[in-house]
Design a binder for these strands. Structure first.
Length: 794
DNA sequence: AGCACGCCGACT
DNA sequence: GTCGGCGTGCTC
């Protein structure tokens, strides 16, 4: 019996199967989809079995070392999906397999030195082995003993052993139970604590977790240990799930009655669910139109049919409120997967899905690979969000994976958004997707009134602060009325940088072509691309002037300004700095929700999902900061964000108001966000895209080359552009080679080439060939990246 | 990606 | 003359 294995090495030359002989004792367990440990060259690594066969063209086969799983971790559907993913995104097969599993299941590798012969070895090496045996690579390296060890290996006195370790650990909890042979009466009369422990245990069917028992009986583990040693108790371990929501109870919620609007939308969806048919729906509904209830009732129907549901939400909006709604409706049938969980917690949630203990998963992008066997619906909320596109290999878009999986399962996909991506809306208009419109807000309230403030006007009239007079007045009014305010700072692409006021020098990263970001807490400057950090200099490195200051409006700066203007107001600031600790995001929102602060000030992360009745004013401090980024989606993103943010105000009885500050009030994405007119925005933006030959009229592919030498990167990029030009049709447009928007990262210069095309059936094969030809791993080789349908052009 | 093998410069 | 630099090629 021979197994074809894809090994855990993401490299061009290794991206194929290797055959291994299956030892007699493993033949009954070995099958497609399980992981194994195999010898590979001098080391041992993990791999996935792709298939079983009886013969191989390779003469000398090695034996599989061991199996990691007893049953497949990836079922047949996911195994074949990985093939599709490899093909679509031009990634290595191993990366496609790996991305479907939680991070905890990625293998870790260790090297150990074993002493074979204790005679005639240097004394310092012997000492090392006396302290630690087997000796780890790490210690050997720290003690600078690697060289000597290498010599000893040659002399066959020391041997290297490679160990494959599974990082994902099943959490075990320690329990004790009454042994049975001895009873309370056998306990010595003076051992009061022991008797007490027995009493507690008897009240709990004779067994309890050690932690609980200690707590209940008020003793220490010493007493319990004595009882185990004396045979009164025996210990055992039980597998536990780490439950990130353990301390929370979820109130059971029931169906809402749907409005006629909602009924119209859900009917065609349920039809497809009942017919077990694929169909992609685009559910377009303004904020507050009740999309979530449609999701919930669809999932409910799916569960009744004994099928399962995947619900994707953007990472950033996977708030406790959201989880609450799903757990409240479906109880413990729900698994939650998002980046806020620890690696172990994610692993546990994944195992619940794999074992079929839950039927719904609510999660971010990677939850699209949830190992369900019978999918009844896949829902992608806020489908326009760019976080559904993975930016590193495999560069997949969750929407594409969703549609592919739905085809295999025969189930509908629902894409929901108040501001659909142009691509999706265009597909819906063409009839590729079925468009479902929710036109009314559920409780009939009006959309909040939106006021646009021209900041140029403010400047002309002498107001140099970041707050317009109107905004300040309105904030004051709300605070008097004890209502709450949300201030939104769009910081993307424009964070605080440090500049010399005399010569204009901006502090830049020495390794990347980007300016450093000021971090007030440490008085330092940091590079967001390579992590380089240094202290803010006292004098300008160029002109030695002392007039160095930071520019840009970071949230910290806004907070300070706000405090200067209104010292009596309590502000909560939410940004990466204040929410990096686990659970802090939730905590801050809780405080705000309880009304303990007047203003919530934040970035991106507060744009979504907040739903507090007392918010009656939303202020956008600078609407146009990302409008001028070199990104053809800049207008779309601005419109989406402003619409999104505006939706935070007046969601309940009290009417809401939105104030948008901008330097370009005449820009159509700001004008139309004011009236929340998606349809007009769509028409207008489509015209722009058509004129500029961008998606959805053209597809894109992006090729990036990077190398320490500018000329080399540019040269290879040029060669590739030439190949493309000669091999593609005249209909296609090749932009470049040009330097990437970020021209250098980690000392490597970056050149790129963009392909715009409508129909190019041979493009994938051509790109594969180019990848093949240019992905050398040698020392002086250029690094090539290909992103089919990129979202970020950097 | 690792790791071994193998061919040319500065040292005991 | 050797030690060791890292270029080249292989991993079932």
């Amino acid at each position: 019996m021979i197994a074809s294995v894809i090994v855990d090495v993401p490299a061009k030359q290794i991206d194929r199967t290797f055959d291994y002989q299956v030892p007699e004792n493993l033949q009954s367990v070995v099958q497609r989809g399980i992981r194994v440990v195999v010898p590979f060259g001098p080391r041992k690594i993990q791999g996935f079995i792709l298939g079983i066969k009886e013969e191989s063209s390779v003469k000398k086969l090695k034996l599989i070392e061991e199996v990691v799983d007893i049953e497949p971790v990836l079922n047949e559907e996911l195994m074949s999906l990985s093939e599709w993913l490899t093909e679509q995104t031009l990634c290595y097969r191993i990366s496609a397999l790996q991305v479907m599993l939680p991070a905890a299941m990625k293998a870790k590798y260790n090297k150990f030195f074993h002493l074979l012969e204790d005679v005639d070895i240097p004394s310092h090496i012997r000492e090392l082995f006396q302290k630690e045996s087997p000796l780890t690579w790490k210690t050997a390296d720290e003690q600078h003993a690697l060289k000597d060890l290498q010599e000893l290996i040659k002399q066959r006195k020391v041997e290297v052993k490679y160990v494959v370790r599974q990082s994902g650990n099943v959490k075990k909890k320690r329990f004790v139970e009454i042994n049975g042979q001895l009873t309370v009466d056998d306990i010595p009369a003076n051992a009061k604590k022991q008797k007490l422990i027995m009493e507690h245990l008897n009240r709990h069917d004779g067994k309890m977790s050690v932690a609980e028992l200690k707590e209940a009986a008020g003793t220490t583990s010493a007493v319990i240990k004595t009882m185990i040693d004396n045979g009164y108790l025996k210990e055992f371990f039980s597998e536990q799930y780490r439950d990130p929501f353990a301390e929370r109870t979820f109130e059971k919620t029931e169906h809402f009655t749907l409005t006629p609007d909602q009924k119209n939308a859900i009917t065609p969806i349920l039809e497809k669910v009942n017919q077990y048919e694929q169909q992609t729906f685009l559910l377009h509904g303004v904020t507050g139109s009740g999309k979530t209830e449609i999701y919930l009732q669809t999932i409910d129907q799916v569960l009744k049919q004994n099928r399962q549901a995947i619900m994707l939400v953007p990472e950033i909006s996977l708030t406790p409120q959201m989880v609450q709604r799903f757990k409240g409706r479906f109880g413990n049938q729900v698994a939650v997967m998002h980046s806020g969980l620890s690696v172990g917690e994610k692993y546990d949630e994944w195992r619940k899905i794999h074992r079929g203990e839950v039927n719904v998963v609510v999660g971010a992008r990677s939850a699209i690979f949830a190992p369900f066997k019978k999918l009844g619906v896949i829902i992608i909320d806020e489908e326009h969000e760019t976080s559904y596109k993975q930016e590193d290999s495999p560069r997949y878009h969750a929407r594409d994976v969703a549609i592919e999986r739905s085809n295999r399962h025969g189930c509908p996909v629902i894409l929901g958004s108040a501001t659909p991506s142009l691509e999706s809306f265009a597909r819906a208009k063409k009839g590729n997707y079925q468009l479902l419109e929710l036109e009314y807000r559920m409780n009939q309230q009006d959309l909040p009134e939106v006021r646009v403030i021209d900041m140029r006007e403010e400047l002309r009239e002498g107001n140099r602060s970041m707050f317009s007079r109107d905004l300040l007045t309105e904030i004051e009014k709300r605070i008097e009325k004890k209502e709450q305010v949300v201030l939104f700072l769009n910081r993307r692409g424009y964070s605080s940088f440090i500049m010399c006021r005399d010569c204009g020098t901006v502090m830049q990263c020495p390794h990347c072509e980007v300016s450093l970001t000021y971090h007030r807490s440490k008085e330092s400057m940091k590079c967001h691309y390579c992590g380089h950090e240094e202290y803010v200099p006292n004098t300008c490195p160029e002109c030695e002037s002392e007039h160095i200051r930071y520019f840009g409006t970071g949230t910290q700066k806004v907070e300070e300004e706000l405090f200067k203007l209104m010292p009596h107001v309590k502000t909560i600031r939410m940004d990466v700095d204040t929410t990096s600790k686990k659970g802090s995001h939730e905590k801050l929102l809780d405080v705000f929700g309880r009304g303990e602060a007047d203003i919530l000030l934040g970035t991106q992360m507060i744009a979504k999902g907040l739903d507090f009745p007392n918010i009656t004013l939303v202020g956008v401090l600078s609407a146009d900061t990302m409008l001028h980024l070199p990104d053809f989606r800049a207008s779309e993103k601005t419109f989406q964000l402003l619409t999104q943010v505006s939706g935070r105000a007046g969601r309940h009885e009290k009417p809401g108001e939105v104030i948008i500050q901008t330097y370009t009030p005449e820009h159509f994405s700001i004008e139309l966000a004011k009236s929340q007119n998606y349809e007009w925005f769509y028409q207008k933006e489509m015209m722009m895209r058509k004129a500029a030959q961008y998606p959805p009229f053209y597809y894109l592919s992006l090729i990036t080359l990077s190398h320490e030498n500018v000329n080399k990167a540019a040269g290879v990029c040029n060669e590739i552009a030439d190949i493309l030009k000669s091999r593609l049709s005249d209909q296609s447009i090749i932009l470049g080679p040009v330097a990437s928007p970020i021209a250098r990262i980690q000392d490597k210069y970056r050149y790129q080439c963009i392909i715009k095309y409508k129909r190019e059936p041979e493009l994938k094969n051509l790109l594969k060939k180019i990848l093949d030809q240019y992905s050398d791993t040698g020392k002086d080789a250029v690094t090539i990246h290909i992103d089919v349908q990129p979202y970020i052009m950097m």
